[in-house]
């Protein structure tokens, strides 16, 4: 059974001349880290939101064989940005509590303790959200997305608003969790070097799906030229290769 099956997914915004995402079909086997790449405006965020049924779309999405809305308990989602009032007196602990409201107290405490230890949240769990750095906020949102032990994790540009060291830590953590928890991950990203090192599958999107496969096969100069145009410079370093 596939972790994720997407068939003929199309998103058309009212009044727009052409679809934002057009006839996208692909499937992911369990345990894969698939990364969606494409230029700004290529429909990466729209595709992820349509897959999660957060955006009206036509087509079919199944998660572990279930229609996506029925599969919500199997899905964790980290948005690109969280629009909130920075003066809001809401602590990290309160953010983590929200999706666990229906859980018995003991189980909730156990999950919170796991999240604090796994994502290194203890230092800032009681701080208001507005005082957190981009990296701390992303770790908090990643923890929130994984609190209910999902099988499919969807991340929208997790590196947005995070510095280079935070980015590295985030992806290290993600790789470890995929290994430990048998997660399937779908990520949109514009960091091609990260894609090359982390992804097991790459999806090239520019409204339509232009290609899909392992990064070493897909990330060719020709494919990148087709995707991003002539201005993209791409430096690929093999491990152990001298610069």
């Amino acid at each position: 059974m596939y972790a994720l099956e997407v068939e003929h997914l199309t998103v058309r915004f009212p009044g727009a001349e052409r679809p934002a995402v057009e006839d996208v079909s692909f499937s992911l086997a369990p345990g894969q880290i698939a990364m969606v790449i494409g230029p700004n405006g290529s429909g990466k965020t729209t595709l992820l939101r349509a897959i999660l049924a957060l955006q009206p779309a036509t087509g079919t999405v199944r998660v572990f064989g279930l229609p996506v809305r029925q599969a919500y308990p199997l899905i964790g989602y980290v948005p690109q940005h969280l629009r909130f009032d920075p003066s809001l007196p809401m602590t990290g602990r309160e953010v983590l509590h929200m999706p666990l409201a229906a859980m018995p107290r003991a189980a909730r405490q156990a999950r919170l303790a796991w999240a604090a230890a796994t994502f290194g949240l203890s230092d800032f769990l009681e701080q208001p959200l507005g005082t957190l750095s981009g990296g701390q906020l992303k770790r908090l949102l990643l923890a929130r997305a994984l609190l209910h032990s999902p099988k499919l994790l969807v991340l929208d540009e997790p590196e947005a608003g995070v510095d280079i060291s935070g980015e590295y830590t985030l992806y290290q953590l993600l790789e470890r969790l995929v290994e430990e928890q048998q997660l399937t991950v779908l990520v949109s990203s514009h960091e091609l070097n990260i894609v090359l090192h982390v992804a097991t599958q790459v999806l090239c999107l520019n409204r339509r799906l232009l290609g899909m496969g392992p990064p070493m096969q897909v990330l060719t100069p020709q494919a990148l030229f087709q995707l991003y145009g002539p201005t993209v410079a791409f430096y690929r370093h093999q491990h152990g290769e001298s610069p």
């Binding site: 939101r49 999660l52 957060l54 919500y72 909130f84 929200m98 999706p99 929130r144």
Partner: peptide, 13 residues
């Protein structure tokens, strides 16, 4: 939850 993050709230049921 719905006030703070509509998408995450919807995914949480």
């Amino acid at each position: 939850f719905a006030t703070f993050d509509e998408d995450a709230a919807q995914l949480s049921g």
